[in-house]
Design a protein around this nucleic acid. Structure first.
Lengths: 115, 115
DNA sequence: GAAGCAGACCTTGTATTGCAAGGCTCCTTG
DNA sequence: CAAGGAGCCTTGCAATACAAGGTCTGCTTC
């Protein structure tokens, strides 16, 4: 439960908005998101996380999808942000900054900085 | 699900370590922790969160407890960190810094900073 | 051509965890 | 003796990350 479990719990509620932020740059497909998130600090490991998440966001109207053929292989479903999705990114970013500073403040009284 | 739900999901997995950090300063009791967390950026609202959490941490050997009488009122159960609890704070702090920079990096490509 | 393999998508079931609601005990106040 | 408040805790619910498993398609290998 200790070290590797730490990051697991931290991810909750953040992955969704990290995905939205990545889709804000350009449309991407599932496997691409898994790779990006895994490299960016080991945020994600499994596909079992990303696909239910993408379905949820589609149901909530945050993303829309489009099938694209590939040179050799299965077609991919590309996800892009709707207007509501862009708004969600903005809202979360503001909330994140506040939350981040709060936690930093609590741990700032720790050993990290002087009191 | 939108704005107020954002912070709810962010809290997951962080509250536990914020409580540990606050206990690292000095022993505190349940109601005191609720007040502190509610003031520090509205991290917590309900007692239904803090008491199951404290029980879990006691079962995991992160905290130990001691009853203290009060001037006029019910006795209070004070929680203080064990050696394992102090270690958990240190470990989480390191993990938090990494996680924080990761999320900042993802949203840094957004509108917040220059690219 | 048949068999296998790899990439892409999704579903199901489990564990964790924050929270609202409610209940219990003790003390003070009217 | 009732009413209220402070302190502690339990129960049931909802959200969500993840492992494991399953399908489909097209390329490669024999």
């Amino acid at each position: 439960m200790p070290i590797e479990g730490l990051a697991t719990q931290l991810r909750k509620g953040v992955i969704e908005y990290c995905v939205l932020a990545m889709l804000n740059e350009k449309p991407r497909y599932g496997g691409e998101l898994v790779q990006l998130l895994s490299r960016n600090g080991g945020l994600l490991v499994s596909e079992g996380t990303i696909y239910p998440l993408l379905s949820r966001m589609r149901a909530d109207g945050l993303v829309e999808t489009e099938w694209r053929e590939t040179a050799g292989g299965s077609p991919r479903r590309y996800y892009s942000l709707t207007r509501g999705g862009q708004q969600a990114v903005t809202d979360f970013h503001r909330e994140w900054l506040r939350f981040r500073d709060t936690v930093d403040g609590i741990f700032g009284n720790q050993g990290g900085r002087r009191r």
